[in-house]
Nucleic acid binder design. Structure first.
Lengths: 171, 171
DNA sequence: TCCATGTGCTTCGAAGTTGAAGCACATGGA
DNA sequence: TCCATGTGCTTCAACTTCGAAGCACATGGA
């Protein structure tokens, strides 16, 4: 009626509210996290994510895997990987399997940095995110957001999206 | 700089996991939202947030209020407000109360743009965020994140970060 | 083998974001 | 009134981020 579109559901204020408060809370949290990481480790949140992921998985990742893992553009990752390599926190090397691939691995210094920064990082998260929540809340959030994440991950990943004719029926 | 050595609670993998999946899901969601807004309205997510906030509150806001509302730096808001003003979507004017203040108000064009992109915006959120969730989940998320947001809002807001006093170096 | 096409990564230019510094006005006490 | 200090906003330079284009290698069919 109001628009030509068919089947656009009416706006539900409680839904919009849930979405807004979700993004607002995460923004606030990430800002505080960024401050802590910068102060205690001299790194950005993205850099911490990259190092933590490499340290946690304990094996080299390709640039694409790393970019998709942290929801980041490929060119942006090239830039950040360059910074981290220059700082001696990661190494980049060729893959024996595929000459196109660059494998990124965390160095001992990189691991040490993650270890050094992680306690403060956890403290910030605990203070800002977990303190006002019960254990039940926590499990709810984890469960719910895992479903949302998995649901969205069925869409083509961010950094690989724009290339044509993968499963596009219009080409 | 804090030492952070004593009294740091042990790491709880389920807590860290909840935090990681929360930020990852929000990152994925925001990326998709950004694409929709760019495609249908030619605006960024930040610009949409600013316009939506002004349209919703239905009254002018100061630059600082607007920046705090969307968790954004003040200088960044100066830049974005300039873009929006040039595009005719907002106006900036003086405050009768305080000559230092710039009041930002949404124009009719700005309102129209919000109205135009909102249905698609809601569709994206519904498809990515709400589809895999029950009504119960939704209320849980809204309730939980509201508590988290309110908890964090008791901290000093982002853009009003303590300004270093001219004569007193931080101890 | 050769070539067409797909994939992994980097380079490049443009645009966005930030904190610090700076300007202008506000406020309150001497 | 005068001035010290606080607050609101903008400017500035440095950095970050992105997508498009480009290069190199991979893969599979003719």
């Amino acid at each position: 009626m109001t628009t030509g579109e068919q089947g656009v559901p009416p706006l539900d204020p409680s839904e919009l509210g849930a979405y807004f408060v979700l993004t607002e809370a995460v923004s606030l949290l990430q800002y505080q996290v960024e401050q802590q990481l910068r102060a205690e480790g001299g790194i950005s949140y993205v850099q911490f994510q990259l190092l933590a992921r490499l340290a946690h998985l304990d094996g080299p990742l390709t640039m694409t895997e790393l970019a998709d893992g942290v929801v980041y553009s490929r060119s942006g990752l090239t830039y950040q990987a360059g910074l981290l390599e220059k700082a001696g926190l990661v190494t980049r090397g060729p893959s024996p399997e595929d000459d196109r691939v660059t494998l990124v691995a965390v160095t001992a210094d990189g691991r040490a940095l993650v270890e050094r920064v992680l306690p403060g990082h956890v403290q910030v998260i605990r203070r800002l995110l977990f303190d006002p929540l019960t254990d039940d809340d926590l499990h709810h959030v984890a469960d719910i957001m895992t479903r949302v994440r998995d649901h969205m991950r069925t869409q083509p990943p961010r950094s690989a999206a724009p290339r044509r004719s993968r499963n596009s029926p219009s080409a």
